[in-house]
Simulated assay, not measured.
Amino acid sequence: METFESLVRAEFAPKNVYLNTASNGLLPARTVAALDRAARMRADGVPLGSLYEDVEAVRASFARLAGVPVERIALGGSVAEYGALIAASLPEGAEVLTAEADFASLVNPFHMRGDLKVRAVPLERLAESVRPDTALVAVSSAQSADGRLADLAAVRRAARAHGARTYVDASQSLGWLPLQAAEDDFTAAIAFKWVLGPHGIAFFVAPEDFGGLKPLLAGWIAGEVPWESCYGPVEELARSARRFDISPSLFGFAGLRASLEMVEQLGVDAIQAHDLALADRFRAGLSRLGHTPVPAPGSAIVSVPGLGSRQGELSRAGIEVSDRAGHLRAAFHLYNTDADVDRLLDALSG
């Protein structure tokens, strides 16, 4: 019988101690094989129509992970694309509440509108800062820079009390933290981090009534019958959130289908338990070394102030982490082990 450990070891054999999933996730062996098969189809002149089945399989898989009907799922290329659609739907002068120093792909589309009131507050004060004139609260579920988790339950309560909508970027938590997209108006995430997919694919969850969004990026793929929407204006947009799809990167979806199948096979709850045990082991070790990480309980991302400058020497030693704003950022995921944590601690103690 396959265990969590045996399944993971069959898929991953990194050459380095890889603790940088918050930047890019590793590709499972099955994903590499799927990408190779898709590329060979193109090289051999084989029709690519079957790859569109991968797109729909990815949509269904993400819907299961998100806990929403598949009709609410759109597939595109970046979080910023969908933030731009949300920004375009807001009335002039609307207030958008964000967390200070949240990731640019989340917040920048609202600043680019030029006529919205974008207000940033400390993450821990986000819920209490919602006001009657707040139209939208936009926040990452886990902060990219340091792994701090947003109190989404409190944010949702405050938003509902004031008639505001919520928009969550789950890019740094999808795959290790259970997603409750049904509780928010909008959710977006990219696929190349914790769900271990190729670059170039993003997920989006729209409201059932589309939340006033206009499909400004719609091409032929957004038609109710795409192959009948290739020429001239699209006469009938998809009746589902697929109207917000961007023309798919087919090879990427072939690979992502395999990655998501593995994530579902392992189970997000099991992945979360594994990742957090490693993160907590690292935090305990840091305490013994006299270092204090940014407080981020319950996060698989650990950020240590003042140690970011050591990223280069750690990389040369075969340990991959990130330098973010002077902090050393280590991200622990399913392919990591206790030995990886201990090797990083040993290197930091030197």
Rank of each mutant, 00 (worst) to 15 (best):
E235K: 13
G211S: 08
D342H: 01
E264F: 07
R156W: 03
A22C: 10
Y52F: 15
T337N: 05
S23D: 12
G45T: 13
R42C: 04
S287F: 10
F251Y: 11
D36R: 14
E100C: 11
S23H: 09
R119D: 13
E71A: 15
R281W: 04
D275N: 15
P226F: 07
D146A: 13
A347N: 01
A158I: 10
A145F: 12
L149N: 03
R239M: 07
G252D: 12
L48A: 10
L123K: 08
P297Q: 03
D102L: 04
G163W: 02
G308K: 06
R37L: 12
Y167E: 02
G49N: 13
L149C: 09
R283N: 08
P295W: 05
N108Q: 15
A159G: 05
A138D: 02
S349W: 00
R329H: 11
E71M: 09
R283H: 06
C230N: 08
N16A: 14
I319L: 00
H327Q: 14
A181F: 04
A331G: 11
G223A: 07
A182F: 08
L97K: 01
P69E: 12
R156C: 08
G67L: 11
E95G: 05
A29D: 07
A84T: 15
G298T: 05
A39Q: 13
R243C: 10
I301M: 08
V225P: 00
S171R: 02
M262V: 15
A170D: 03
G285R: 01
L266P: 06
V32D: 02
P295Q: 08
P207A: 08
D146C: 11
L149T: 08
A57T: 15
G163A: 09
S259P: 01
R37V: 15
S141C: 04
F204K: 03
Y231H: 14
G298Y: 03
L152D: 05
L97T: 08
E261G: 14
D185K: 04
D184Y: 14
P122F: 11
L217C: 06
E71I: 12
A170T: 09
G290L: 05
S240W: 06
T166H: 00
R242E: 09
R288E: 15
A300H: 12
S144T: 12
F251M: 10
A206P: 05
S89P: 04
P109Q: 10
A138Y: 03
F332P: 01
L90F: 07
V294M: 05
A127I: 07
D184N: 12
A63Y: 07
V155P: 00
S349H: 01
A38G: 08
Y335G: 01
F210K: 05
G232I: 10
E5A: 15
A43M: 03
V107H: 02
V234R: 00
H162M: 14
H327N: 15
P91M: 05
G197S: 06
S299F: 01
A153R: 14
M41Q: 12
S247F: 06
F332L: 13
